[in-house]
Design a protein around this nucleic acid. Structure first.
Lengths: 224, 224
DNA sequence: CTTTGGTTTAACTATTTAGTTTAAAACAAT
DNA sequence: ATTGTTTTAAACTAAATAGTTAAACCAAAG
């Protein structure tokens, strides 16, 4: 009986676009229906309510956004250098495919923390726990440990590990969050800005090396 | 006749909080009235419509957010090193006072670029112009020129100036945009995170020096 | 071809929300 | 006190929007 139906997927993608553009409060069910090319009643047929539809979308988006991030940050088998490279590379690529993701996630998390924190926790086990035997962010324990070791054995410059990690994340994510403003500032067209972001991966890696590694020799080459 | 009235200011601040929390679409006039401790009718007495109230708030916020940024970026009298220091210092301080600002601005800019680009341009003259005699972002021409000079005379390492400037902005702004998520990741309380951000200024300065200046010696000192 | 069950649609209802009206209270100046 | 103006509050209206219903549609099974 089941029509080989992608309708629910079409709806989900349409809803994602609209929610990302306008947020939960600003999104209209009618607009989502139009975007999906269906009737508004069908929307309620597939997803009981706006809230339900939103949660489905948001859950997926959190997963896409957070799972790779957290996975790489606390993978116990990566060296410090590879961890950084992998993080930057995988993150820029994820975000190039989903440019609207981070702003959307931050938006909703900020307007309704209570309702959504639990969703975050589903995908990032251990965010809440702060048990006595773990002195600090267990999420980042390995990463921070590697940086501390590097500072002790002289291979790393002095940094506050948390500030360093936050800087790494900032350099990757902010260009997407601040896209419209930065595009205005740099006077770049849509495609031009995409290229700019694609080139950004290696530039960030170079910066992070200059910050962290004592023996790193800044690359040379043709001036930009 | 005029009661020495702060009511319109109280309304404006209440509206700012609600708009920053929920965005234009998600904000409710009733909620703003409650937040200001007045009746909804008084809201319309002071500000004719939601749109009008929003524009007043948004205009001010863009000013607070952009004017110092742009001012420092293109001040013709600052040296490269002072420009960077001043930018980071003044920006972190501005944002500590208005933590919700950047997310709010990005949000609305993304959901309604057309309506707002013109507001941005009011405060940032020259954003639109791309005349033939200006080869690139005139907004950043001086800053970029200084970096190029530094690379030519050997005092600066090789960077893409635009990527470098974007990194500087990212490190300053993202910790505020991503606040809820980063707080979760670092497991910091509200006050703890504020302190963390206050310490961030000098850490960013150090990072930027390591990236850009050829002869910079990484500071030493007690491990974090 | 007709029954059956999921799917789609147009029209409808209920609720929320921006904005208005009106009248009373508060206030300032005389 | 008196008067005229500004401000406030409650109740109201109009519009927008989430959600429902019931009938039509359609594809597969009998």
């Amino acid at each position: 009986m089941n029509k080989d139906n992608q309708t629910d997927q079409i709806i989900l993608e349409a809803a994602r676009r609209v929610f990302q553009r306008s947020g939960y409060g600003g999104a209209r069910m009618q607009e989502i229906a139009n975007e999906a090319g269906i009737n508004k009643a069908s929307l309620h047929y597939y997803y009981r309510s706006k809230e339900k539809l939103f949660q489905t979308v948001y859950r997926q988006d959190i997963k896409v956004f957070l799972v790779p991030l957290v996975g790489i940050l606390r993978d116990p088998f990566l060296t410090l250098e590879v961890r950084m490279r992998t993080f930057v590379g995988s993150y820029i690529k994820t975000l190039l495919k989903n440019p609207g993701l981070p702003l959307f996630i931050m938006q909703e998390l900020s307007s309704n923390p209570g309702r959504l924190i639990s969703l975050v926790e589903d995908h990032v086990p251990g965010v809440r726990s702060r048990s006595a035997d773990e002195e600090e962010s267990p999420m980042l324990a390995v990463f921070i440990g590697q940086i501390r070791n590097g500072m002790d054995d002289g291979s790393c410059n002095k940094v506050d590990p948390e500030q360093f990690i936050l800087s790494m994340i900032s350099m990757c994510v902010f260009p997407f969050v601040g896209r419209p403003l930065i595009r205005l500032l740099l006077k770049k067209g849509e495609q031009e800005y995409r290229d700019f972001l694609a080139r950004r991966e290696e530039e960030i890696n170079e910066y992070l090396h200059r910050i962290l590694f004592r023996n790193h020799q800044p690359i040379d080459g043709p001036r930009y």
